[in-house]
Design a binder for these strands. Structure first.
Lengths: 212, 212
DNA sequence: TAGATTGGTTATTGGTTGATTACTTAGCAC
DNA sequence: GTGCTAAGTAATCAACCAATAACCAATCTA
C-alpha cells in the first residue's frame, strides 16, 4: 500500500520525525516490557508503532540502542514523578507519596517492566552498565534529595522491586481465582491496588514475530 | 572427534541418562541466569554442558520445557533450603535464618536469576502460569509453615526480589568503584555480603551463539 | 511550480536458531 | 564374542531476524 493507513488508528499523514520517534519509543516500551530485550523483535515494535521494520532500525540505529533509549526514557519519567511527589505539599509521609507515584507509573504500559528487564541483564556489556547507572541514580536521589537513610532507601527500593515482580508475573491474572494471591497483593499494594487491577492489558501482538 | 572429550573436564565416557540430564540442567541454569529465556540458545547450553545441541533438545523436548524444568529444579532447591532453615535449632530469628539461606543460594550459579527471569515473563502463556505457581508456593510456605503474617511475608519476599535485582544487575561489579554502591549493598545484604563478593563468575560463553 | 528536504516504504540478505532425521558406538547380558 | 539397548553425534533445514540498499512521495521553500 502506498497510501499509508496505520492499523493503530492514526491515519498515516506524515509526522514530524520527533513525534514519530516518541511514538515508536512508546510502542517499544510496551513490547520490551512484555517480552524483554531478547524476546522482542524490531518487527513487532514496528507493527505496534504502525511503521515499517526498517524505519525503526533507521531511526535508532540498532535494536540495542532502541532498548537503551527506552530505559533512559523510563528512568526520566520515573525521576520526574518522584521529584513531583517530593515537591508536593501534603500531610502524607514522603515515602508513601513516592510509593503512590511509583505505583501510578504502572499505568504507563511496559514502563516499569522494561526497566526490570534491563535490571536482570547486568551481564550484558552494553546494557549492564547503563542499567546499574540508572538504578544508582534512583538510589542517590533517595539518599540525597529525598533525605532517606541507607536502610530506608534500601527498603523503599525493595518494595519497588516487589511491585515490579508482581506486575511482571501478572499476578493480578489470578486475583479472582486465588485467595492467597488477593492477600499477597493487598500486602504489596496497601493503596492503589485498584489501579493495578483496572489494567487489563491485552498482549501487544499475537506473537507472530518474536522468536519461540 | 569420535572419542568424546568434553571441554568441561569430565571425560566423555558414557553417562547414565539421568546424570547427564542433571548436568545439562545445571548448565542451563547458568546460561538462562545470564541471558534469560529468549536470550539463551540451546547451542550455548549444549556447549556449557559438553554435549551436542540436538541432544539437549532430545532430552527435554523443547527449549521451553527445558526452561520450565530449570525453574522447577530451582524452586525445589529453594524450598529445600527454606525447610532446612525452618527445622534448624538456633537462637537466630527464623526470618534471618531464612534470609541467610536465601543469600546462600546465590552461590549456586544462575539459580536465583533463572527464577527472576521467569518471574518477569508472566505474560508468556506457558511460562507465566508456572512462574506464578512457583512464587505463590513460596508465599504459602511463609504463611502456613514459617508462621509469618501477610505483611511479614510480603516484606520477606520484597527483600528477596531486591537481592535478585542486585545480583541481576551485577551490582558487585561496581563495588570497588562507587561508595554509594557499597552503602547500598551493605544495606541490602546485612550479612553474607562477602559471599556475594567472592563470586567472580566469568561469563558462561563468549556469546558466539545467542542472538544480538 | 521546480527543486530540495524529510519522512517514510519495499525488497533483500547473511547469519542464527530450534528442531528433525539418520547414523554411530559404548557397555551390558548371555 | 555376539547381539541388543541406551547414549550419544553429525548433517541438515525451514523459519526468523536485524540490518542494508534502493527507492518514493509529502511538504516546505524560493
Amino acid at each position: 500500500m502506498s497510501s499509508v493507513t496505520k492499523e493503530n488508528g492514526t491515519k498515516g499523514t506524515r509526522m514530524r520525525a520527533e513525534d514519530r520517534r516518541e511514538l515508536i519509543l512508546k510502542a517499544a516500551t510496551q513490547v520490551f516490557g512484555d517480552y524483554g530485550y531478547f524476546g522482542t523483535t524490531t518487527a513487532v515494535v514496528a507493527r505496534a508503532a504502525g511503521v515499517s521494520q526498517p524505519y525503526v532500525v533507521r531511526v535508532f540505529g540498532t535494536k540495542e540502542k532502541l532498548f537503551l533509549e527506552v530505559l533512559q526514557r523510563a528512568l526520566d519519567l520515573l525521576m520526574h514523578e518522584f521529584r513531583a511527589a517530593l515537591a508536593e505539599e501534603s500531610d502524607i509521609p514522603l515515602a508513601d507519596r513516592m510509593g503512590l507515584a511509583y505505583v501510578g507509573l504502572a499505568s504507563n504500559r511496559g514502563l516499569l517492566l522494561s526497566l526490570m528487564h534491563g535490571f536482570v541483564l547486568g551481564r550484558d556489556p552494553e546494557i549492564g552498565p547503563e542499567a546499574r547507572k540508572g538504578f544508582m541514580c534512583v538510589y542517590r536521589f533517595l539518599r540525597s534529595e529525598a533525605g532517606f537513610d541507607a536502610d530506608e532507601s534500601q527498603r523503599f527500593l525493595a518494595g519497588g522491586m516487589m511491585i515490579n515482580t508482581m506486575i511482571g508475573l501478572r499476578m493480578t491474572d489470578d486475583f479472582d481465582r486465588d485467595a492467597d494471591v488477593r492477600e499477597l497483593l493487598h500486602a504489596a499494594f496497601p493503596q492503589k491496588l485498584d489501579v493495578l487491577l483496572a489494567l487489563a492489558e491485552p498482549p501487544i501482538a499475537e506473537r507472530n514475530g518474536a522468536r519461540a
